[in-house]
Design a protein around this nucleic acid. Structure first.
Length: 711
RNA sequence: GCGGGCGUGGCGGAACUGGUAGACGCAACGGACUUAAAAUCCGUAGGGGCUAAUCCCCCGUGCCGGUUCGACCCCGGCCGCCCGCACCA
């Protein structure tokens, strides 16, 4: 019986597809449009199974929609700036651009071989000057809108990658790429005002009904809206405390204004401006602040860190009672970048405040009475009472429930002119500058006379120079001998270019709009974008739930307000596929080993493995996400070589539900291959069997429909 | 601590909206083909009991209870695991 030979059939169809341009999407067409895309890859060198799974899923949707008569846009590009290219340059002395474009060529061929139905005429890489030049153009538009600013502030500094990280890129106090403990540094930084859009980003999450609940919840938590009161505790007019230079008082933020009569102290962040002023006058405060800074930022350190405080000697009066004096402390658990960087402590109803008060012997007054408790005898011991109840010990708020008391307290504060109801977000502005050479240059110059001047649009793109030196750590662009020297566009005098480059998440925050017309002379061809946007189905990993997916939403809204886009949201449908994981293997000397070099010699509890070549035993490690560094990567190309593309694709799609993580095993592809063969044999055999085979492909189509329905 | 999710054979996992639990695949076992093996094809297969029998009976979807004619599915309470956020005032 003849066997199915993928090596003969596949090239034939690949050639036919390429020649007919069958996957090209037309801008404007009588058919309804459908825009499906997968998160574009970083061109690291080779595709791995995770990529194959991702692109095969999108391809199924694309082909299905095409078959259903839609005008389908299914593009591909490359997220091509970033550190791995710099590392390659440092290690091997290659040019990062050359290295990147070589990888792209290789991976493009792999994708084409997998038969992914992509409109390759729209392909681009973010490191193409044509792309990043347009990015610079819209960056300057946002600048003019006031959405870009520069500020000195404490930033997250990754000591290994030697660059600044956004808050979203710090995971458990460590850099998201380097895994190194992040340090706090004071630097001049560039920011995008994502917080201007905090409320809209939160509100319009509700419209994303084809997004996973999980991702919406994660973004909601990340934005972290809370309602409360911003309130000033005026400095008390003690004789001898003439501190006019310090201002009116200490302004705090609270979500529990109902507990104001339980206040026992006011506390400042060690990074609070007032703390800094006081440090100048009192070396003991300076010393305390220094001690706080030494504490690490890693999760474990924060978790176990003791609450520390220092009494500044300053006194404030209670906003509701001019005769009530409260001490002002500096405390290590107050965060400068949330609220106002200062709190009032209510120990009876907040656990941290209670711990602090017990440690330093501060008063504890209960003001919320739990149901059924006697107001005469109720006391808080070592556990703060944070549930509902009736307010007591609180003058005008006595007897109210918590919500009513909050309203009453805010009203009183406003009447006194000491505060106002306030909404506070956890979300902070997006720090977008990176001290790296392989990235999109920020198109501004620093002029001694004129200050910061933007590069005129006619001079874009500001191109990266050739011949950057990556052999040493640090910013290769900054130390380039000539690049930064230029003339000021405003006065014509000597000036220096900004040497920071943009976070690569900026590159990926608008690429979906660029695909709609990648050759446009403006960043976005409005007609094309109006036709195609939003992306009907976006597919990618869950790891971008608050990074890329939040940034892309923000940039879409900002560009919309700039009149460049008409949609409110970039991705109408989102599907987050699970990760592909694999066991890791190490040699006795600790080197990671490729799975393809390992054989398992016994199963079960005494599972052991050895190197195929030498028989050396290898240690079986954890099951982890496939990554180059741990070498637990399986290449789909190998699978396609052995079994053919159809089997490989079927295997990555059917092994596990698409949204779930899969632990990769080579076993599945055998079964897939058998199925492909059976289907083929069915067709190849007598015509009478056609009905049966038809049923099989019906079945498969049903599977695809299911995937689509899920997505 | 807060939020989200999950728990079904040896394994990955099916089961529509509450209606025959375990589809499909992997691994396993038996058979056919072959000198033999591979490949392929056919068959068996949750656990236990009984039997001449592929008849039949009992138990089974993390645990305990409830609703229902009927529960993997709904409700209440536990246990365990995964993910996200977290000194957020």
């Amino acid at each position: 019986m003849p066997r199915y030979d993928p090596k003969e059939v596949e090239p034939k169809w690949r050639a036919a597809w390429a020649e007919s341009g069958i996957f090209r999407a037309e801008n404007g067409s009588g058919k309804p449009k459908y825009y499906v895309m997968e998160m574009f890859p970083y061109p690291s060198g080779r595709l791995h199974v995770g990529h194959a799974r991702n692109y095969a899923m999108g391809d199924v949707v694309a082909r299905f929609k095409r078959a259903r008569g839609f005008n389908v846009l299914h593009p591909m590009g490359w997220d091509a700036f970033g550190l791995p290219a710099e590392n390659a340059a440092a290690e091997r002395g290659v040019d990062p651009a050359a290295w990147t474009y070589e990888n792209i060529a290789f991976m493009r061929a792999e994708l084409q071989r997998l038969g992914v139905s992509i409109d390759w005429s729209r392909e681009f890489a973010t490191c193409d000057p044509e792309y990043y030049g347009q990015q610079q153009a819209w960056f300057l538009k946002l600048w003019k809108r006031g959405l870009v600013y520069r500020k000195e502030g404490l930033v997250n500094w990754d000591p290994v990658d030697m660059t600044v990280l956004a808050n979203e890129q710090v995971i458990d106090g460590r850099g998201w790429r380097s895994d190194a403990p992040v340090e706090r540094r004071k630097l001049n930084q560039w920011f995008l005002r994502i917080t201007d859009y905090a409320d809209e980003l939160l509100e319009s999450l509700k419209t994303l009904d084809r997004w996973p609940e999980k991702v919406r919840v994660m973004q909601e938590n990340w934005i972290g809206k809370s309602k409360g009161l911003r309130l000033t505790f005026p400095f008390s007019a003690d004789p001898g405390a003439e501190r006019a230079d310090l201002g009116e008082g200490v302004t705090v933020y609270t979500t529990r204004p109902d507990t104001l009569y339980g206040a026992s102290f006011v506390a400042l962040s060690p990074d609070h401006p007032l703390t800094e002023q006081l440090s100048g006058a009192d070396p003991r405060i300076a010393e305390f602040v220094e001690a706080c800074r030494k504490g690490g930022t890693s999760e474990a350190e924060i978790e176990t860190a003791e609450k520390l405080g220092f009494d500044t000697g300053l006194r404030v009066t209670h906003p509701f009672d001019p005769d009530w004096r409260l001490p002002v402390w500096v405390a290590n658990f107050i965060l400068m970048d949330y609220g106002t960087g200062a709190i009032f402590g209510c120990p009876a109803h907040d656990q941290r405040d209670l711990d602090f008060a017990r440690k330093y012997g501060l008063p504890v007054t209960s003001v919320v009475l739990p149901p059924g408790e006697d107001p005469a005898s109720f006391e808080v011991a070592n556990e703060a009472y944070v549930e509902g109840g009736r307010i007591f010990n609180s003058q005008f708020m006595d007897g109210l429930d918590i919500e009513a008391a909050k309203t009453a307290a805010i009203q009183r504060a406003e009447d006194l002119g000491l505060g106002e109801g306030a909404t506070v977000y956890r979300l902070r502005d997006w720090g977008i500058a990176r001290q790296r050479g392989w990235g999109c240059p920020i198109p501004v110059v620093h002029c001694g006379k004129c200050g910061i001047v933007t590069v005129p649009e006619s001079e874009l793109p500001v191109r990266l120079p050739e011949g950057m030196d990556f052999s040493r750590p640090g910013n290769a662009l900054a130390r380039h001998p000539t690049w930064k020297h230029t003339t000021c566009p405003a006065c014509g005098g000597e000036a220096e270019r900004e040497t920071d480059t943009l976070d690569t998440f900026v590159d990926s925050s608008w690429y979906f709009a660029r695909y709609t017309n990648p050759d446009a002379a403006t960043p976005i061809d409005k007609d094309a974008a109006d036709y195609w946007m939003p992306v009907d189905q976006y597919i990618g990993g869950i790891e971008h739930a608050v990074l890329h997916l939040l940034y892309a939403r923000f940039v879409t809204k900002a560009l919309r307000d700039e009149g460049m886009l008409r949609v409110d949201e970039p991705f109408a449908g989102l599907f987050t596929q699970g990760m592909v994981t694999h066991e890791t293997y190490r040699r006795q000397n600790g080197d990671w080993v490729d799975p393809s070099d390992v054989e398992i010699i016994s199963e079960g509890a005494t599972r052991r493995a050895r190197l195929i070549a030498t028989g050396e035993p290898v240690t079986i490690g954890d099951i982890e996400k496939m990554s180059k560094s741990k070498r637990n990567v399986v290449a789909p190309a190998d699978m396609a070589d052995t079994y053919g593309v159809d089997a490989a694709r079927l295997c990555v799609l059917s092994d596990s539900p698409p949204e779930r993580d899969v632990q990769w095993t080579s076993a599945g592809v055998e079964g897939a291959s058998r199925l492909v063969n059976r289907v083929w044999a069915e067709f190849d055999a007598e015509p009478a069997a056609e009905a049966d085979a038809e049923r099989q492909s019906e079945l498969r189509r049903a599977t695809h429909k299911t995937i689509k329905a899920v997505t």
